[in-house]
Computed example of a mutant assay.
Amino acid sequence: MSESTPSLRERHRTRTLAEIHQAALELVGECGYGDTAVEAIAERAGVSRRTFFNYYPSKEAAVLGTTTPRISDAARERFLDTSTGDEFARTVRLFMDVLRDATGPPQLTAQRYELVENNPELKRSVGMHINTVESLVVSTVMEQPAHGPTPRSEETSHAFVLLAGAVIKFAFRTNTHLATTLDDDAVQRALDHAIGVFRTALKEIS
């Protein structure tokens, strides 16, 4: 199954999100988080205040580059394509796809990390964002029939997705360039390695 090619509308959305996010990061760097206003971000990005709120719900979201998590057509296709891996591997990839889609461009990751470190109040928002991504992935996984004699419970599905999130966290910690790469093959290799490490660890405790 081939992945969907982003439509013109989708490419415009991605570009505008990135431009507003870039403007927000620049202004925070110049003026500080507390002294950066939505109006200034919109002006720097060349959009109206109304357009700003069509893309980001708040100044905080624009600064962090976070948008409402969603399952894109491409991510859903990849998850449903059984030729791309077993159910757990596909769940890990789905989690990663949703997370990357709902977060600013990888090339701005270093600036976001620095911002969060300098503004601890933003860490809670980052945690809540990841929790929202997790919940969406859980609901998507639960829509699919589990392989086994009995359906997977909501509790087990949640544990399944939490483990997928742990794999991603491990991959990021062991590959410091993963968060900033645009190379999808490199992302997949890192995830495959992390999945292998977790499979080995789980065998030892099973």
Rank of each mutant, 00 (worst) to 15 (best):
R50T: 13
D97K: 01
R49P: 02
F198E: 12
S157V: 06
H177I: 05
A62V: 07
N119G: 04
M96D: 12
T181G: 02
D35L: 05
N175H: 12
T84A: 07
H147F: 05
V98F: 08
D35P: 00
T91W: 00
P145T: 11
G104N: 04
E121K: 05
T82Q: 12
S139C: 07
P6C: 06
A23F: 00
A179I: 10
A42V: 10
H158I: 09
R13N: 14
E143A: 15
H129F: 06
D81K: 07
D192M: 08
A40D: 15
Q144H: 11
I195D: 11
A75V: 08
I71C: 10
M1T: 13
K203F: 05
V137W: 01
N175D: 13
I168C: 05
E30A: 03
R112D: 03
E117P: 02
S135G: 09
P57A: 03
F172T: 02
D35N: 14
A201Y: 11
F160P: 02
Q144V: 15
S48P: 06
L178S: 04
F198R: 06
L178W: 00
L163V: 03
S157M: 08
H193N: 12
T156M: 11
R112A: 05
A186Q: 13
A40R: 13
A171G: 04
S153V: 11
R90I: 12
C31T: 01
T103P: 01
I168D: 02
D86P: 03
L182P: 02
S4P: 01
R70W: 04
R100F: 03
G127C: 02
S157W: 06
A190Q: 14
F198V: 14
N131K: 11
G34H: 07
V38A: 04
V167D: 05
A194Q: 08
P151T: 04
T132C: 07
R100G: 02
T5K: 07
A62F: 00
E87C: 01
P106M: 06
A62T: 08
E87N: 01
E143K: 10
R173N: 14
R93Q: 14
S4N: 13
V92W: 00
S157N: 14
A164M: 01
L99S: 05
D185Q: 15
D184Y: 06
A62R: 01
K59G: 10
H193A: 13
E121P: 02
T176L: 11
F172D: 06
R15K: 15
L108Q: 09
G34M: 03
A159P: 00
G165Q: 07
F160I: 04
V98I: 13
L80G: 10
V138F: 05
S4A: 15
M96G: 02
D97A: 08
L115H: 00
E134I: 00
A45C: 09
P120Q: 15
R199H: 10
R100N: 07
G34W: 03
L163Y: 03
F53K: 03
A201S: 11
K169A: 14
D184Q: 12
